[in-house]
Design a protein around this nucleic acid. Structure first.
Lengths: 225, 225
DNA sequence: CCTCCTCCTGATGTCAACATTCGGACAACT
DNA sequence: AGTTGTCCGAATGTTGACATCAGGAGGAGG
């Protein structure tokens, strides 16, 4: 996840399986509501059910899937209520992350943010895949949380990160032009404020940034699913 | 939790194991830093290693234990940095939960809060176990999150709830008299503000409530563990 | 005496088979 | 016809055995 230190931490098959399934969900190969059967996944991924099970538990922690007692695991739906919940929480988390990062971020993190904005600008100018722009968007906020250096805060962010990723992908489908036009400028402003801005202004802008995303997504959603 | 329908949700052995181990940690039978060996727990609880493993994963999601690749699972330490992280995040979450609950809470939740304050007052007057007072403290905030009705927000709260429980137990050890004296009044004020208070005042008081707890805990901790 | 290498021990990671449970199909009953 | 009770299939929950790995004890070499 764009960490500074690759750390080479050896991961188990459970993490591997979680990554594969997560990628499949974000790619749309598992549409919202799809059932994720353990035996099926185990056979397809070439690992045991135990590992798949552990990987699915991880995705459940990320909020990408939901499961119940003897009721299997399914991909979450994207209802207006879900979007509302995630974005309201994200606004509070982003506000805290931004104000904290404003205090403690070092130059390395700040320049990394500038670099990401530059990449976003290049990507938005071209007409490439929208997926890549969304990935850069998420990576930008990953950096802010990393800069804040609060492990629990980062964990809370990671608990909604994947859901947000899924939502943002729908957002570009719904409002592609609008998204491309504003995404670069909004992030550039955030990067500037993080380097040398008033804390209160930064807090307000961080919340507004989320609110902007929420509204543009809700506009393209069915009102009552 | 206090839903109209008890739902009688049947739980698996993993949940059972997680509950047992969590209780043991909060009781002090597993002190901070203690190693939680899977085979040992499995034998002692009378279940298989797989179930214990899944239960430990759940406790890891709650932040009560930490684990690494082939490095086992250990109870978290209580360092000043950990306390700082949890309370800073909690302040942001509590602020959001309180302001949301102020808008959407129904009478049932509000009267439940009053009832909890009354119980706390009765408990603080007597000289019973401090554990019970802390449990009521946590339950009070559980109610606020339930009243807010945001599932993701509640999940974020539950990710630090058990750690907070652990910290608060240390807090009463460190500053027992101070805690008893203030805990009832602070919660009573929060309950009042939730029923009919200015939102901005409520938000400020919610953050101050957390800050008060943080400082009184940090005061009784070793400076550099 | 210190350093490095090797091996060993105890633990976790992984697996495939067994037991339990949910949900719907089907039929009997009212 | 609508409802209730029963049965069956398929998926999950659980288990014990096997494979793999981290960390330290011990000894050879410097």
């Amino acid at each position: 996840m764009s960490s500074v230190l690759p750390k080479a931490a050896r991961r188990g098959l459970a993490d591997e399986a979680a990554d594969l399934v997560r990628a499949a969900i974000l790619d749309g190969r598992f549409p919202p509501g799809a059932a994720l059967r353990e035996v099926e996944l185990a056979a397809h991924l070439g690992v045991s059910r135990g590992s798949v099970r552990e990987g699915l538990a991880r995705l459940e922690r990320e909020g990408l899937v939901r499961g119940g007692w003897h009721r299997g695991t399914t991909v979450i739906e994207v209802t207006a209520e879900d979007v509302e919940e995630v974005y309201v929480l994200r606004a509070a988390l982003d506000r805290l992350a931004a104000t904290t990062a404003r205090r403690v971020a070092d130059e390395e993190h700040l320049s990394a943010l500038d670099r990401l904005v530059a990449e976003m600008a290049a990507e938005a100018a071209g007409s490439g895949e929208a997926h890549r722009l969304v990935a850069l968007d998420i990576a930008f906020h990953d950096r802010i949380y990393a800069a804040a250096g609060n492990g629990r805060l980062t964990a809370a962010w990671e608990a909604i990160r994947s859901q947000l990723h899924l939502f943002q992908l729908r957002r570009v489908d719904a409002a592609r032009a609008h998204y491309r036009a504003r995404v670069v400028e909004e992030h550039r402003e955030l990067a500037t404020l993080l380097r040398s801005g008033d804390v209160r202004t930064l807090a307000r802008r961080a919340e507004e940034h989320v609110d902007s995303a929420r509204r543009s997504l809700l506009a393209g959603l069915p009102p009552a699913p």
